[in-house]
Amino acid sequence: MTAQPAPSAFQVHASDNVATLLAEAAAGAPLAIVGSSSKASITASEQIALGHKVALVPIAEGEPVIKFGVVIGVAMRPIAPGEWVHLHNCRSQLDERSGHFDVRTGEPGDQAYA
């Protein structure tokens, strides 16, 4: 594998409003949407790592975030297409600790050590 393929994102289900990055994308990078794609491409508005999610459509605050065709969380604030969807803007409907994790490292911020 000498030629680096264009970064792409995988949309698992046609009803999904997010896709998963198959390789890291830089800010401004055009991403081909593969899988059950509802659109051909999207531009990453910020750097997004492999395995992380990009928003495909605008998602309003309180609206469900959908992947695999199921609700995986709720938008904590409005999310624009091309934005990284993660701990800073999407929380679990069940897990009480969701919303207390560092967006980059995942480190919990709600545990006292003293």
């Binding site: 999610k53 969380g73 999407c90 679990s92 069940l94 994790f101 490292t105 995942g106």
Partner: peptide, 17 residues
């Protein structure tokens, strides 16, 4: 819930996902 800091760092956002 069975989801960890490493899962988050790897792109998984919630236990549902």
């Amino acid at each position: 819930y069975s989801v960890s800091p490493g899962n988050f760092a790897g792109g998984l956002t919630t236990i549902e996902e």
